[in-house]
């Protein structure tokens, strides 16, 4: 075993170097390399929700915030409209998660009222700023708080992708901002 150790260590070290080379921790301007996705647990108005609770179902995950008057409603309305086109059986196998990138202002209750407007089964999620940042980073979602003179207080810049996770919890596809309904339906059916 001992004499094989260098042969195992060298590729492992090379791998580590490659990973570190691409890793830019805490750089908000950069979209994460290739998002890994993966399991997480965040808070809804009805208690904690984990991605693994949804195994067997396709999950659409959108990162946004409730003070967002245009970009988030556009995407959530598109997703809501796509859900209405699914057969009842397909619909049962799809979950939609709206993760707040403004955890300081968005409470689980506020998120629940917001998401219900677009679809009664949509789940609003939040957590501590660190929890949300960790999940967003893994999915490749970027956001940052921006000071502004607006009466809204600070603003939140955010990427506007929808992440489609398959029934086994693997990140399957990424949809762009304002994806047409047919594109959303296609992704749901491909990732099932």
């Amino acid at each position: 075993m001992k004499k094989y150790l260098p042969y195992l260590l060298i590729p492992a070290l090379a791998g580590l170097v490659a990973v570190l080379w691409q890793w830019h921790p805490g750089d908000p301007l950069r979209l994460a390399g290739k998002p890994r996705g993966g399991d997480f647990t965040l808070q809804s108005a009805r208690g904690p929700v984990s991605l693994h609770d949804l195994r067997g179902r396709v999950a659409l995950i959108y990162f946004g915030y409730t003070s967002c008057p245009d970009i988030c409603p556009t995407n959530l309305a598109q997703i809501g409209a796509a859900l209405k086109r699914l057969t009842p059986q397909e619909r049962r196998n799809v979950a939609v998660l709206f993760v707040s990138v403004d955890p300081e202002r968005d409470t689980p209750q506020k998120l629940a009222r917001y998401t219900a407007f677009f679809d009664p089964a949509m789940i609003g999620l939040t957590g501590t700023p660190a929890q949300v940042a960790e999940v967003a980073h893994r999915y490749g979602a970027s956001y940052r708080k921006v000071k502004s003179d607006s009466a809204l207080g600070y603003l939140v810049d955010h990427s506007a992708f929808t992440y489609v996770v398959d029934g086994r919890g693997r990140l399957c596809e990424t949809l762009p901002h304002a994806a047409p309904i047919d594109q959303i339906l296609g992704a749901i059916r491909r990732c099932h």
């Binding site: 970027s142 810049d157 955010h158």
Partner: peptide, 20 residues
């Protein structure tokens, strides 16, 4: 509304930015 502002959205650095 209590306050009315003029805003625009710009896609920059891969993020939607809303600015007065």
């Amino acid at each position: 509304a209590e306050v009315v502002e003029l805003h625009e959205h710009v896609m920059k650095d891969g993020m939607m930015q809303m600015r007065p």
